[in-house]
Amino acid sequence: MLGLPTVWGAVAMTYKFVCPFAQLDGVGARIATSAVFFAVGTGLILRVRHILMRELSETRAVADAAQSALLRPLPPRLDGLVLAAGQLSADRAASVGGDLYDVVATDHGVRVVMGDVRGHGIAALGTVGAVLGSFREAAHDEDELGPLMRRLERAHARHLRQRARDEHPSACGGEPENPIAEEFVTVLLLEIRRDGAVHALNCGHPWPYLLRPGAVRCVEPMSGGDPMPPLGPFPLPAELAPVRCGRIRPGEGLLLHTDGIEDARDHHGRFFPLRSTLDGAVRGRPITPQAVIHAVYSRLLCHVGGRLGDDAALLVLRNDRSRVPAQHAGPVVRTAHKVL
């Protein structure tokens, strides 16, 4: 990049001292000299712009590849559930964010994780990878949600320590005094059993919504009480007992989301009406996960004028087990991905 100004200076000096026309004092000579300098400068500016645009395009391609590797494609059906997920990033420089989600079929039931890393953009991808990598392994190994959540906590803590050592090499391999203390991640763990019963552990994340298109109230919060603090600032409690939040009956759905959706404001400062948007999307019609996501995102972008202040992720599940036979094959890791 520094070579271009050097070239411009070299051309200017060469023209000034070598070209005979540049030695003349007439008005015409001065106009011609100015035109030459303007043409050379314009060419160099356009060249710099081309290089910057190419580097930005390459950066976005790398970021998209990293995001796709972390949030792998979502199967349309998994153990009798119909799935779809989506993500919108607040980072305008790249379509990546700090939201995470995954769905795996295990011997213990279908397990779901939804999380939100503090911050967004490329810097949050490391934490997303640490948490998702731990979940994908531990979801099959752990019989209960409590030990699974502790595995996620340990993975997050290891990631923060490593980041602190990398960013503060003066620690000389020792433990830094303040390993990125303000970093945290909210995590919601769900276990959906064969009868549709939903068990959960929640560390600072919004509770999901139960979608029941045939009921009088077709959108209801599925809550298990006050959530625990996010992973990072405080250790988990000694006792981690999952709570039963309710049940998803055949034909009903569940929507998980990050707080970037309900916290989104319009230019008048009004919050996004997620519940009423869901009501309009599912009332009187079968639940189609992709259609629900499209309806929410369309109204969300209209609400904020196309500019999000935080990442916004959605994950929609529909219990289709009355029509889809149980899949008896061995458990295979399958994951959720964005559908935009």
Rank of each mutant, 00 (worst) to 15 (best):
P242W: 07
P325M: 10
G269F: 05
V131Y: 02
G224W: 00
V243M: 02
T186V: 07
H337I: 04
H257C: 05
L255P: 04
R285E: 02
R249I: 04
R77A: 13
G173S: 08
L255M: 12
G129D: 03
H337G: 12
N319Q: 07
S89E: 01
V112G: 01
D310Q: 07
E177P: 10
R323V: 10
M114Q: 01
P176M: 13
V131E: 03
G330H: 07
H294W: 09
G3I: 11
P221Q: 11
R265C: 10
L52I: 14
L301A: 03
V11F: 15
V187M: 03
T186R: 02
T42H: 06
V11L: 15
G133C: 05
G146Y: 05
G253W: 05
A84F: 08
L314C: 04
T277W: 00
Q290G: 12
G109V: 14
C302F: 02
V332H: 10
P73M: 08
L256R: 00
G26E: 08
R47F: 12
A329K: 08
D64N: 13
I261E: 00
E167Q: 14
Y15T: 13
R321H: 09
R30D: 03
V333E: 11
V103G: 04
S322T: 11
F184L: 14
G115S: 08
S89P: 06
F21M: 12
D263E: 15
P213G: 04
L81W: 13
E252H: 10
I31F: 07
L188E: 00
M53D: 15
P206I: 01
S95K: 11
A164S: 15
P221K: 08
S68P: 03
R270N: 08
P229L: 07
T59K: 14
H267V: 09
M53I: 14
L340W: 12
I287W: 01
P76V: 10
H294K: 14
L236M: 07
R92V: 14
G3D: 14
P237T: 06
G330S: 09
G3S: 12
G246D: 00
C245I: 02
I31D: 07
C172F: 13
A238T: 10
F272I: 01
V11H: 12
R136V: 07
C245L: 09
G260E: 00
D320C: 12
G129C: 07
A105V: 05
A181Y: 13
G309L: 06
R92A: 13
T335D: 07
R249D: 11
V11A: 15
S134P: 03
V62A: 13
D266M: 01
G280L: 01
